[in-house]
Design a protein around this nucleic acid. Structure first.
Lengths: 152, 152
DNA sequence: GTGCTCCTGACCAAAGTAGTCAGGAAAGTC
DNA sequence: GACTTTCCTGACTACTTTGGTCAGGAGCAC
């Protein structure tokens, strides 16, 4: 249940692209510096985002990357899925495809609920929300509770 | 964002222990068979659960494992934490300890919200809920929505 | 055609995952 | 007290994932 460096980097780089907006292609190097990400690793990630259809790019002088869609229409979930694959798997299988036996029969519903709650956050925060800092109400409410900040 | 085999096994084995209740120690072999888990691997997992204080054990004939606390007082989160460590980490660090720069500044709140929503499920389902099939309302509601069962 | 920038595949070290193997140590039975 | 049963523990292994680096090629602008 951890967020990989790749996913974290993908979101951060995309946030920079969202903030750049209409000012034309942004170089990989500038993204790497802005977010302190190893350039060559970032290039691989941006390539994956491109293959997923979230980002576009042009080479050469004046080249760089930009978002394929408006920042309002790209969610954190889109980015995480592009680099990590499905958001919640149990032993490499999606929860709904697992058959539990015996006394663990209802465990599937638990994993389904877990996934649903993950989606409830990740699919509702757009890049526009992220850079503006005006989070959807669900995030506001969850992160407002002091308990949410306790380590455990 | 995946649940490891170890965590899945831990919950399933614990569910069997919860169901066994007061009928005395349950052998590892019986747990392994009931949930189709490799015995030797399961023994390692049960040992971790014991070290975490969730399970107790006795050796020899008539030996076996049992829950250290009533099934109502052990949650899925307890079990997952015992074998996987903290429930939501970003790049091996807890979300509240990360400092984001530039346009990703608000990303921390997103990860905090993600973790809060994970906890909202995992900390509120007890082993007793799991074996009885009577889930807390949050799980009922989440898993009732057809959308929650869609792959994506 | 000469730089600039992205594109792609190959490679690599370290860590994590999912186990197996071999033996030791306590508890109960005869 | 020997014997069996069951847990306890560490060592080991094969495979995959993670988080990168390296080297070169391909497209674009001037």
């Amino acid at each position: 249940m951890r967020v990989s460096a790749k996913a974290d980097y993908a979101v951060r780089a995309a946030a920079e692209l969202a903030a750049a907006g209409e000012e034309g292609p942004v170089k990989g190097e500038r993204l790497a510096e802005a977010q302190d990400i190893p350039l060559q690793f970032l290039e691989h990630i941006l390539l994956e985002l491109k293959h997923a259809g979230l980002v576009r790019a042009r080479r050469g002088a004046k080249g760089g990357y930009w978002l394929a869609r408006p920042a309002e229409e790209i969610t954190i979930a889109d980015l995480v899925r592009a680099v990590e694959g499905p958001i919640a798997h149990v032993q490499s299988d999606p929860p709904e495809s697992i058959e539990y036996r015996g006394n663990a029969e209802h465990l599937r519903e638990v994993w389904i609920a877990v996934r649903a709650n993950l989606r409830a956050v990740l699919e509702h925060v757009s890049l526009a929300d992220l850079v503006s800092g005006e989070m959807p109400s669900i995030v506001e409410e969850l992160s407002a509770e002091p308990d949410a900040w306790a380590p455990r």
